[in-house]
Design a protein around this nucleic acid. Structure first.
Lengths: 344, 344
DNA sequence: GTGAAAGCGCTAACAA
DNA sequence: TTGTTAGCGCTTTCAC
């Protein structure tokens, strides 16, 4: 038994197939009586409009989430945010992990767009920072929304969703400073990682404004992983002048640092305060729970999805404005006041 | 500038558009010279076949990964496995998280299939255990592969990929028994969770075969989460007769248990042995690293994907056989020999 | 080997 | 308010 088509419905309802099309698309100019009849036939035949044929005549109804990020929690949260928006608007999500170092990314994506499978693309760092790629995709008529780190959009190419890491890094450093900490280590510096750059910038800015110097040796290079967090923490804890607080560039690093502190028989936060960044599940799987920056990935992703969908629907890149997200500190138990007595 | 179509290519190459179609589809009966000419024109115009139009005439080239699972690592690994296979075969992956308790799942999926967007579906627990849903999808002409827990396929409806949790649970319990443990707690029993059921079954079987009784009070109900793991560990550690080893139903529970042990000033494994299940990143983010069961989610997912794709290509559910996966113990440092002396 | 014609299921443009 | 005609980009006959 073949799948019923619009014509089968039309025949059954005794109307032209265009009328059925009108009903399906909720177009005006259909009398109530005819509408009812058509709807009944649809139900009776269990008719489902052929999405593919529809897409061929109009625009694609799928968007792609393109990423190169090993952080499962991040990816899942982003995905979920995008999907929640897709569901609302009747779009489908295709996921596309890639290797940002490969030169093929552009062609891969161009193929998806060129073949009309996908109309819009959501790009996350580091891909979103690749201006050449974006320009290329735009030239191929793709609707692109980039999620990236910055106080402001980096350009006017297309709307972006920028996250103010500088401000966030500033806030949490300031919080540590206010708690009396003067020797704060920064774990997870990564020169080619815009977010990391932004966060250190905020870290430095907070020191400058408070007029406290920061120690360059306290800025440690590393990856955004638990293992790297352990490694970096080990490094600073072995220093002759040991920091009294640690600003970890993300929660995973912070979790690794908490872990290493414990291995060194240091109590958190009594002996050393440790803060994270992201408010991921890691923040709650560590003891004490992490004071961190809340980065609402789900909302960020949903917003990005809403933007692409709007761009696709209106077929206009500039139908939508860039948006900025500013992040706030979540205070939990991994950082406390520093005073000389407690250091004894 | 519009996207080039097959006709533009034909015009440029000076052939009929059908010939271009033949070249694109690598059909026989095209002379080398013509082929070369066509290929050149394609490159020159940067022609991409319109995937949508193609799908309309043939079968869909997308499959859906349908899941209801809060475990990010699991989902990501599965996704990556499926994608790796999709890439090879030129298929696209659409992800579809759902709420398995909703009655709408069937309709949602039916809509995706009926509308010709998606040809194949990969189902994971608990959705894969819903026979009614599977029957329904099959009746809608979907190619379905289920991943589920079991020694054997539960039915002949369609090929499945079954994972032998009983055997795995047996092996790791046996390992603990061989280390001299006699009081082993099982954390994470979940009556409506086939995997959990399988693992306890193996747990019991190992005790029976070794002819050691197990204590029913040591089988603790709980969720597959870190928090629940902490909670359950707290419970067993407070018992008057304390277990010497813990079999956690997954690594997240185990990580929570390790954590709780430490809070109780118990050393792992010297004071208490703890093993996990899954070999997820959690197994390495705990100290000591977890002895666990290696569940190769990536491979499992890739295999499932290969199965669906084969079913789609041959348009035959039974073009493929069910497959079983048996899992092995990975020995690390979280479990050690138990002897009375060490218990002092 | 190659090409012309028909048609997939749908929507857009225009009639009636 | 409804129906007719054309045609999206492609593949599938079937003819040359």
């Amino acid at each position: 038994m073949k799948k019923p088509t619009i014509k089968d419905v039309a025949k059954l309802a005794g109307v032209s197939f265009k009328t059925v099309s009108r009903v399906v698309n909720q177009e005006p100019n259909v009398s109530e009586s005819v509408k009812k009849k058509v709807l009944e036939s649809i139900k009776q035949l269990n008719y489902q409009p052929n999405h593919t044929a529809r897409v061929m005549r109009k625009a694609p109804f799928s968007l792609a989430f393109v990423y190169d990020n090993p952080n499962s929690h991040y990816v899942i949260e982003m995905q979920n945010g995008i999907i929640s928006e897709c569901r609302k608007k009747g779009f489908e999500l295709v996921i596309h992990p890639t290797d940002s170092h490969s030169d093929d990314v552009g062609n891969e994506l161009a193929a998806m767009i060129g073949s009309n499978q996908i109309g819009g693309i959501i790009l996350t760092p580091p891909l979103s920072e690749n201006k050449e790629l974006v320009t290329f995709l735009l030239s191929r008529d793709a609707k692109v929304v980039r999620i990236l780190s910055g106080e402001q959009p980096p350009d006017k190419l297309a709307p972006v969703l920028h996250i103010d890491d500088i401000d966030a890094g500033f806030k949490i450093t300031q919080y540590l400073l206010e708690l009396g900490h003067r020797d704060i280590a920064f774990l997870g510096f990564h020169a080619s990682h815009e977010s990391s750059l932004g966060r250190v910038k905020g870290f430095k800015k907070a020191h400058e404004i408070a007029n406290f110097p920061f120690d360059k040796n306290f800025i440690i290079d590393g990856e955004f992983t638990f293992e790297s967090g352990m490694e970096m923490a080990k490094q600073v804890l072995a220093m002759s002048k040991r920091p009294t607080a640690i600003f970890a560039c993300n929660d995973e690093i912070a979790a690794g640092a908490v872990f290493m502190a414990r291995l060194n028989n240091l109590k958190v936060p009594e002996d050393i305060s440790i803060v994270g960044f992201e408010n991921s599940p890691f923040a709650m799987q560590t003891w004490p729970h992490l004071t961190t920056i809340d980065q609402p990935n789900f909302d960020i992703a949903a917003t990005a999805a809403a933007m692409v969908i709007e761009m696709m629907k209106s077929n206009d890149i500039h139908a939508v404005d860039s948006k900025g997200f500013s992040l706030d500190v979540v205070i939990r138990e991994s950082a406390c006041r520093y005073s000389l007595e407690s250091a004894v």
